[in-house]
Design a protein around this nucleic acid. Structure first.
Length: 285
DNA sequence: CTTCTTGTTACTGA
DNA sequence: ATCAGTAACAAGAA
């Protein structure tokens, strides 16, 4: 599942490949993946160039420099894969960097650039989307997102204030994109394990020490996951089709029935806030 | 065959 | 206003 670290990795890598290249052609293979009228979508993009790439939570924002912006959300199984002219010509076989043919049956949208390089938007479950918005719509959408954990304004003081306004459980709090933007099921569970706090705890009865540790853990886990280029469980790959390396650092996500690396008790899995939630009932308090 | 998975939105009722 | 719970979306894994 692309969460903040995965989207950040794709954003950074793609920025080095696609900026300032003219878009020659748009191949829309599955209409529902685009949330605009298809002819409007193509009209805005063809002939335009991506001027900047940014990330808001798990949402990618491609600035077109003409007052319009392309939004792409990968949801659970979306991929954005870039291939240069040489790779496009070679197909999927001859290059060790990537190991599958494109387009494949999950390639719903393809951007063709003037240098014959291509950007493929793949999505197995078709939950992801692409959408063109103008500046006003973009500002409205951005307002719905909470603080980015990497933002310098995400201080302990700020975090303590966020918690004060809430009453629910911690898992739901961490997953709520309008409070903190970018955390999903994998990193929420990993953060709570790191902070040694149970996911079903109410945000109202955390001690000062727990709040401080939780704040530290959010930044620590997210920064480490970015360093290792995200977590590949099923479909996630970066823009070159490579896997993320954070899988080997997971300590609770998909570790149910295995032994806790900290205390050797069995990792449990239950439903919290409607989501599969993994934790150690012994060393998380 | 059924159940589960997951990000987000929409809807219900409390 | 906020929260908990659930359905919806889709397709594959178990």
């Amino acid at each position: 599942m692309p969460e903040l670290p995965e989207v950040e990795t794709i954003k950074n890598d793609l920025s080095a490949e696609i900026l300032h290249k003219k878009i020659l052609f748009i191949e829309l293979r599955l209409k529902k993946i685009v949330k605009n009228d298809p002819s409007f979508f193509k009209k805005v993009l063809i002939g335009a160039k991506f001027r900047a790439l940014e990330r808001c939570g798990k949402l990618m924002i491609f600035s077109l420099g003409n007052g319009q912006f392309l939004l792409i959300h990968l949801k659970m199984t979306g991929q954005l894969i870039f291939r240069n002219k040489k790779q496009v010509i070679a197909g999927g076989h001859s290059d060790t960097v990537f190991n599958f043919d494109l387009p494949n049956k999950y390639s719903h949208l393809v951007f063709v650039f003037e240098d014959k390089s291509k950007l493929f938007f793949n999505d197995l479950r078709q939950f992801g989307y692409a959408r063109i918005v103008d500046k006003n719509q973009l500002e409205q959408i951005k307002q719905r997102f909470g603080m980015d954990p990497l933002d310098s304004r995400f201080t302990l003081k700020y975090f303590r204030n966020l918690l004060k306004k809430r009453t629910g459980n911690l898992k739901a709090f961490l997953l709520n994109q309008s409070i903190i933007a970018g955390l999903g099921n994998i990193y929420a569970d990993e953060i709570l394990f790191e902070a040694k706090i149970l996911p079903m705890r109410k945000v109202t009865n955390l001690t000062i020490g727990e709040i401080s540790l939780l704040h530290k853990s959010i930044r620590k886990i997210i920064m480490k996951a970015i360093k290792y280029r995200g977590t590949t469980f099923n479909t996630y790959v970066d823009s070159a089709g490579r896997r993320g390396d954070f899988l080997k650092f997971l300590r609770v996500y998909k570790k149910e029935k295995k032994l806790c690396q900290r205390c050797a008790h069995v990792i449990k899995k239950i439903k919290v806030a409607g989501r599969g939630t993994r934790f150690c009932e012994y060393c998380q308090k």
